[in-house]
Design a protein around this nucleic acid. Structure first.
Lengths: 122, 122
DNA sequence: TCGCGTTATATATTTGCAAATATAACGTTT
DNA sequence: AAACGTTATATTTGCAAATATATAACGCGA
């Protein structure tokens, strides 16, 4: 008896490989927050980054606020008011987090793709 | 610059290691459905299994209906009416799915625990 | 034929969360 | 001091998902 003979062949199965790092009772990093941080680097602004992603400003702000609260070193630094009305930058620590997360994610996706393959063919 | 010096040391971080196997546009197997199948084996009944898990009967029924629709061989066989009012059994194919899923889940949890360790200490 | 406990299914209600909206505060520029 | 675009925060609205409720169908046994 084989797994592949049980599953409906007209359907394609996959593992949900979204990597999410969480702390005790809050989310920390996931694909969405990583993309948001990258868009903030591009635009220098939370509101513009949110708009670029089709995300509400509130959700974007909540996300970066959540991230900052879970680190000792700030990941983003915001300024309300000032030239161009203000803005937001991602710190070097933030950029390190982004790079490390993406590497970890790539590793896990690879491992998953191997595992699901053997599972579905077993 | 190190990840572990960025993160708040008063918080414990972990990877969300819930394994979910999905098809094109429906869930297939996750920890909840696995537990439900196991409780059905124990009790011989969807309703009793649901009650044991604190799950509504509708959600339980929807879950097993969804599973059965994604396989060519039925995973559970239900009977409405009959002695004791009816009942539900898990087929050998269902038991194979449970065992394979748990093995896969264990492998992934191990891999994750190694990965998150190096990530958090890097 | 009725009762029983179960599966099967529809409908209504509630709840939680995402989105939208509104407003305040901020600090440079003019 | 007024304008501007941004961050910051509260409030309201809308919607989807979970839950609850109700009812039907099923088939054996008394």
């Amino acid at each position: 008896m084989l797994i592949k003979d049980i599953l409906n062949p007209s359907m394609t199965f996959h593992i949900n490989d979204m990597l999410r790092i969480e702390s005790t009772n809050d989310r920390f990093l996931g694909p969405g927050r990583i993309e948001l941080l990258e868009k903030i680097i591009e635009t220098g602004s939370i509101s513009q980054a949110a708009k670029l992603m089709g995300m509400s400003y509130k959700k974007a702000w909540d996300s970066i606020h959540s991230i900052n609260q879970q680190t000792v070193t700030p990941i983003v630094i915001t300024q309300a008011g000032g030239e161009k009305g203000g803005g937001t930058i991602v710190t070097d620590e933030g950029k390190l987090l982004i790079a490390s997360f993406k590497q970890l994610h790539a590793d896990i996706r690879l491992y998953f793709s191997e595992k699901i393959e053997t599972f579905l063919q077993s």
